[in-house]
């Protein structure tokens, strides 16, 4: 399973999202590869991903960038809230 964490520039925020998604997956006992990406390259990065994590703010742009890719987009409000990220991943993957 592959998950992509996306932000506008591909550094900073997406890296935090990646780290905390990995933490959340660990707590849930799920295994997945999480990679960070910027908006520009998300279509390629997510070509074989099941889930794309991003902020509510960027969700529209991510959806447009993904086009017909079927990865599910999960919107995260608090990038540091491992419980929120875990709950949303569990609902999506479980």
């Amino acid at each position: 399973m592959r998950i992509i964490a996306v932000c506008g520039s591909g550094i900073g925020t997406s890296a935090i999202l990646k780290l905390n998604a990995e933490r959340a997956l660990g707590r849930l006992g799920l295994s997945a590869v999480v990679d960070a990406s910027d908006l520009e390259s998300v279509a390629v990065a997510a070509s074989d991903a099941q889930v794309v994590l991003t902020s509510t703010e960027l969700a529209g742009a991510v959806r447009a960038a993904l086009g017909r890719n079927h990865a599910e987009i999960i919107e995260v409000v608090n990038y540091f809230d491992v419980d929120e990220i875990g709950g949303k991943l569990e609902a999506s993957l479980g």
Partner: peptide
Amino acid sequence: VIEEFGAYVVVAPGLALAHARP
């Protein structure tokens, strides 16, 4: 970055992580 992509840099309640590419 914020003008282009919006306020997503506000990564948690009350906290903005301002940044740009290298």
